[in-house]
Amino acid sequence: MKLVVTGHGNYASGIESTVKLLAGGLAGVDFIDFTGDMDENGLSKKFSEEIKDDDKIVFICDLLGGTPFKEAVKLSMSGEKDISVTCGCNVGAIMEIGLQLSTFNGTSKELADKIVSISQSQTKVFEHKNIETESADDGI
C-alpha cells in the first residue's frame, strides 16, 4: 500500500516537513507538489511514475475538485490498480495511518475510509471538560 499526498503549491512538501519533524519520515508515503510551473499532464506523469511499482494506492488531496484531485481520480479510473482518492484529510490522520501502513492488508477503499474517519474525529473545537484519569479496578 502506498499513500500519495498531493496538493496545490507546496502543500505536499509542507506536510512532508511536518511529518519529518514529528516522526522522522514515513515509509510508503510520498509527497507530490503541484506548483505553478506545472500543467496537469506533468502532474499526472509524476503520479504514474510514483506509483508504478505499487498495486494499491490512496491519494490524499488538498481540495475537492482541484487539479491534483481530478488527475488522481482519472488515474483511479484506468482500472489497472486499486486506487482510492480522498480530499481534505489532516496531518493527524496521515501520521496515524502512515505509522501502521506496513501492517495494513485491506483494500485501498478500506484504508481511504479509515483516513477520512480519523480526519473527521480529529477536526474539532477544543472544549473544557473535567478529565477522569483515575484507574480502573485492575491496574493503575
Binding site: 477544543f126 484507574s135 491496574g139
Partner: peptide
C-alpha cells in the same frame, strides 16, 4: 489528555512520590 484520547491510550498525571508508591499496582496488561 487531548493527545492521549485521540491516540486511544489512557493517561495518568502523577507526582514522583505517587509513582514510587503506586507503580507496583500496575496490571500486566
Amino acid at each position: 489528555s487531548a493527545t492521549a484520547e485521540s491516540s486511544g491510550v489512557g493517561i495518568r498525571f502523577w507526582t514522583v512520590e505517587k509513582t514510587i508508591n503506586n507503580i507496583h499496582r500496575a496490571s500486566a496488561r
